[in-house]
């Protein structure tokens, strides 16, 4: 066993980790996929279905007419609507009827989007608001006020 043999054996042993490190090195030059949430947010698909939003018309009236078709279509039975009648003094939506109470139980909701499909006025839409975690069950029952888009004059 000569010195040269020793050197060859050592080189043989060093070769494997170096090969490995070279792969690591090649990856370190590639673009990063990790996103620094919540400082950075990944853009969602245009069709992403997350939390519901109740829309308004441009004049500020609510699109929702309180018809309960969303609640009827909901396979998870997560929606509760209580309707009331519009009056001249208190006009909430066009036509005769509006939703006095509108609640969605987000624990039950399976984000299937049937409510959006059933809605005759496109009042309810599933938007890309996905931060729904909470530590209190009753806070996960979203009320109409929480889901309504702000009225134009309030902006």
């Amino acid at each position: 066993m000569s010195l040269w043999d020793d050197i060859k054996a050592l080189a043989e042993e060093v070769k494997a980790p170096l090969t490995g490190l070279s792969i690591t090195d090649s990856y370190s030059r590639q673009p990063r996929v990790t996103i620094q949430y919540p400082d950075v947010r990944r853009p969602l698909s245009r069709r992403a279905r997350w939390r519901h939003v109740l829309n308004r018309y441009e004049n500020g009236l609510e699109k929702c007419i309180g018809c309960s078709l969303c609640a009827g279509a909901c396979p998870a039975n997560a929606i509760y609507v209580k309707a009331a009648e519009n009056t001249a003094e208190n006009r909430v939506s066009p036509g005769e009827r509006y939703a006095e109470q509108y609640e969605i139980n987000m624990i039950r909701c399976i984000f299937c989007g049937y409510c959006e499909e059933a809605c005759p006025t496109q009042a309810i839409q599933l938007k890309d608001i996905y931060e729904l975690a909470d530590d209190e069950r009753k806070d996960l029952i979203y009320t109409k006020e929480m889901m309504l888009t702000p009225a134009p004059e309030e902006e």
Binding site: C67, S68, A71, G72, A83, E85, E96
Partner: peptide, 9 residues
């Protein structure tokens, strides 16, 4: 009964 409920509810 006006606007109180829908028949399926």
């Amino acid at each position: 009964y006006r606007f109180q409920s829908r028949p399926w509810e």
